[in-house]
Amino acid sequence: MDETSHETTDEIAHVAQHLARNLVALRHARALTQEGLAKASGVPRSTLANLESGEGNPSLTVLMKVAGALGAPLDELLASPRAKVRKWSVEDISAQNRGSGLTIRPLVPEPVRDSILDTMAFAPGAYLRGTPHLPGTREYFTCLEGRVAVFVAGERHGLTAGDVLAFPGHVPHSYRNEDAHHKALGVSVVILARAGV
């Protein structure tokens, strides 16, 4: 075997190892079993097991199906550990001004499948009416700073720093910073229900 062939073989082995590690990590992050991923992607479980062991030699079609089922770009499946590191500056993350005195920014600047993750910065007295989601959606609001009242189906729930409130996301809900003099900060996590599930 000449030197070029040897280097090519090594590169293929490295990519297979990156794929194996990334596939396991992404599958676990999505709380999927191999069987669940097989069903979602249409790829046999035995093929996935081979890929996760670093032994597989998948076609582009198989990789595309797996990446699609994981909601991840193809390059994330194949990337070396260093290539997956990325930093966003505050200017890179778009903020939305919503309601009266409320600023919402993504907590995670990349899409997270079936979830909405936001920070919510409330000016003194700020108010926001939430958007109802599909039945089966679950919402979590964590108060990080200040005092926030969350109204769910007409019932008031007062939160202070460290408190977490979970509630069904399909019912009417709203948020209010009840302090007229101080800001408040919270994190909203919405686990979306899938249509037809």
Rank of each mutant, 00 (worst) to 15 (best):
S5D: 14
E11A: 15
H18E: 07
V24G: 01
A29C: 14
A29V: 09
A29H: 12
A31G: 11
L32T: 03
L32R: 06
L32H: 07
Q34K: 12
E35D: 14
S41Q: 02
S41K: 02
G42Y: 08
R45S: 09
S46V: 13
L48S: 00
N50R: 14
S53E: 05
T61G: 14
A69L: 00
L70G: 03
P73L: 05
L74Y: 04
L74S: 07
E76R: 13
P81Q: 08
R82G: 11
K84G: 11
K84D: 10
R86E: 11
K87W: 14
S94H: 14
A95W: 08
R98Y: 08
G99L: 00
G101C: 07
T103M: 09
L107T: 05
S115F: 13
L117I: 03
D118K: 07
T119A: 06
A126Y: 02
Y127R: 10
Y127H: 12
L128P: 01
L134H: 11
P135R: 05
P135K: 06
R138T: 09
C143E: 00
C143A: 08
C143I: 00
G146W: 02
R147F: 06
R147L: 11
V148M: 01
A149C: 15
V150C: 01
V152C: 07
G154D: 07
E155T: 06
L159M: 15
L159R: 01
T160K: 08
T160S: 09
A161R: 03
A161D: 05
A166E: 12
P168D: 15
H173S: 04
Y175E: 01
R176W: 00
N177S: 09
V187E: 03
V190Q: 03
V190F: 07
V190C: 09
V190L: 08
I191T: 05
R194A: 13
G196V: 08
V197M: 14
V197N: 14
